[in-house]
Write a protein that binds this DNA or RNA. Structure first.
Lengths: 262, 262
DNA sequence: CGCAATGTTGATAACAATCAAGCTCGGTGG
DNA sequence: CCACCGAGCTTGATTGTTATCAACATTGCG
C-alpha cells in the first residue's frame, strides 16, 4: 500500500535526509486508484473534460499501468513509437545523447504530464525517458487513441491541447536558454517548478528538487558549479532557503524581478 | 503575376544586391496555384497523404489566402487563436516580446510549414509572427479543421504529425542553445537551413539568408557581432563563402564535424 | 548624394567554464 | 554501532569565450 503524504507538504520538515530515495515519492494521489474516474490527475491529463461515459471508454484504453524504477528508462532513443504515457506518480527526465556520449536533458516531467509526444511524427523516440525516482505511468496505445479521438471530439481536442502545450513549454525554455544569464535561468526554473507543483496541489514555495545539481545545470545549459554557487548566493540574499534538494522560496517577487517578466 | 525563378538557384549569382527586398522572394511554386491539388507544397503541408477526394474537401477549408507584407505581422501576441496558417511563399519569424521590450526570436519559418500551432492550447497567441519578406499564407479555420479531422483519419494524423514535429524541432533548438558553443550554433544553423531548403527543392549548398545578422544572433542566443565574426572565420577557413546574406557551403563535412554529430 | 540600416572588425570587460580541493551525508560492511 | 567510502555538493583560483563598447565600411533608397 502506498504511503500517504500530506498535500502542501511534499517533504518532511524536520531533519530531512538528503538522498533522493529518502524523500517520499512524488505521489499526488495517495490512493493508488486504477480507474481514471478516481484519479486525482483527472483534471490535468488527457482525460480532462470527458463525460463520464467517454471517460469509461478512455479508461479501457489507458488501463494498463507500468512501474519504472529510479534510473530505469521508460523508452530509449531509437525505440519505435507505439504508445504514449501519462505520468501518474514519480518524475522523469528526457535525455538526448550524442555519439560523443554527451548527455543533454531537454525536460523534466511531473505527474499529469504526457511522455512520448515528440515521437509521433518520426515514429521513433529521439530521446531517453529516465525515471528520477520510482514512478508509475499509464500506457496508452497510440493507434487506438487516434481511432478513439476520431469519434470523441473532446478527446481529440485534449490531444491537440497536450501537443500544443508541449510546444509552448519548449518555446519557454528556448527563451530561457537563448537569452538569459545563469542567474535568470535558475530563478526562472525555480519559479516554473513552483507553478507546476502548485498545479498538482503541492505548496508553491516549498518543494524538493527531483534532480541532481548536475542534471539541473545540464538542463539549464550551465555547469553544476554555477548552479551550486547561485543557490548559495540566492540563499545569502534571502531569496530562498536551500538545504541540499529542499527548496523554500522566500521572496518570489524578487525572483520574478530577476527574471525580468519574460 | 508572380516572377518565375529557377529551382536550385534561389538567388541570382552575379553581383547580387544586398537588401532583402532585392532578392527574389522565396517562392517554391512559381505558378500561383490556388488549389491544393496543384500546389508544389502538397507533399509537405497538412494536405500530405490525402486522397484526391479528401484533398478537395480540405481545399474548401484552406481556400482563403492572405498576403502579408515584409515587416507586417500575421498575428500578434495576445491575439485570440482561431486559425492555423500554412506558409505558401515567403518567410516568417516568431518573436516573443517581454515587458522590457527585449525581443527573442524562437523560430524562422519557410514555405510548407505551419504557423500558429503553439496557440491551440492556450487559445491565444503568445508570439508575434512577422514576415521577413512579402509572403502568402493559406488560412485554415481551426474549429472546422478539427471537425474535418474527426471524419478524416489521414488529416487527423497529419495534424498530429505537424504538432509533433514542431516539438522535435524545438527540442533540437534546445540542444543547440543549451549545450553548444557559438561556433557550433552557427554551423548547426547553416546545416539545418541547408536541409530545409533542399526539402523545398532548392540547392542544399547555396542559399540566401532571409534574416539580418541581428535576428540570426538573437535566435541563436549570441550577439550580432559574434555572428559576423564567425561568418568571417568560417570563410577564412574555407568552410563557407559569404557575401552578405548569400551563403555557399563549401565543406559540409567539416561543418558537421564542428557540430559534433548531435 | 547623403542618410539610415546593416554588417565588419578591434579593444576591453564580464560572466561562466574549468580545474582543483575539501565537505556532507547516507549507505555499507566490519 | 561505528568507520569508511563514494556520490553529490560547495567553494576557491584561474582561464577562456563571448558580450559590450566603439569605430568604421557597405549598400540600398529617398
Amino acid at each position: 500500500m502506498l504511503q500517504t503524504i500530506a498535500l502542501n507538504q511534499p517533504f518532511p520538515i524536520a531533519r530531512a535526509p538528503v538522498r533522493t530515495s529518502a524523500y517520499p515519492r512524488l505521489v499526488p494521489d495517495a490512493r493508488s486508484a486504477v480507474a481514471c474516474a478516481s484519479c486525482s490527475l483527472q483534471g490535468i491529463c488527457l482525460a480532462a473534460g470527458l463525460s463520464s461515459k467517454e471517460l469509461a471508454r478512455f479508461d479501457q484504453l489507458a488501463m494498463h499501468k507500468r512501474k519504472v524504477n529510479r534510473g530505469a528508462a521508460l523508452y530509449r532513443n531509437g525505440d519505435t513509437f507505439e504508445t504514449l504515457y501519462a505520468l501518474r506518480s514519480g518524475a522523469f527526465k528526457s535525455v538526448g545523447i550524442s555519439r560523443e556520449g554527451n548527455e543533454k536533458i531537454t525536460g523534466f516531467h511531473l505527474p499529469g504530464e504526457m511522455l512520448g509526444l515528440e515521437a509521433i511524427s518520426p515514429g521513433r523516440h529521439a530521446y531517453d525517458a529516465v525515471a528520477l525516482e520510482d514512478s508509475e505511468v499509464c500506457v496508452i496505445p497510440f493507434a487506438e487513441l487516434e481511432a478513439l479521438a476520431a469519434s470523441m471530439p473532446a478527446l481529440q481536442r485534449q490531444l491537440f491541447r497536450a501537443l500544443s502545450s508541449d510546444i509552448s513549454r519548449d518555446q519557454g525554455l528556448m527563451l530561457l536558454l537563448g537569452s538569459m544569464s545563469a542567474e535568470q535561468r535558475l530563478a526562472a526554473f525555480l519559479l516554473s517548478l513552483s507553478r507546476r507543483y502548485q498545479r498538482l496541489g503541492f505548496s508553491a514555495n516549498r518543494f524538493v528538487l527531483r534532480m541532481t545539481r548536475d542534471e539541473l545545470g545540464n538542463y539549464l545549459g550551465i555547469t553544476l558549479e554555477t548552479v551550486s554557487r547561485l543557490m548559495s548566493r540566492f540563499q545569502r540574499e534571502g531569496l530562498v532557503s536551500v538545504r541540499q534538494r529542499e527548496i523554500e522560496l522566500n521572496d518570489i517577487e524578487r525572483l520574478m524581478a530577476l527574471v525580468g517578466h519574460w
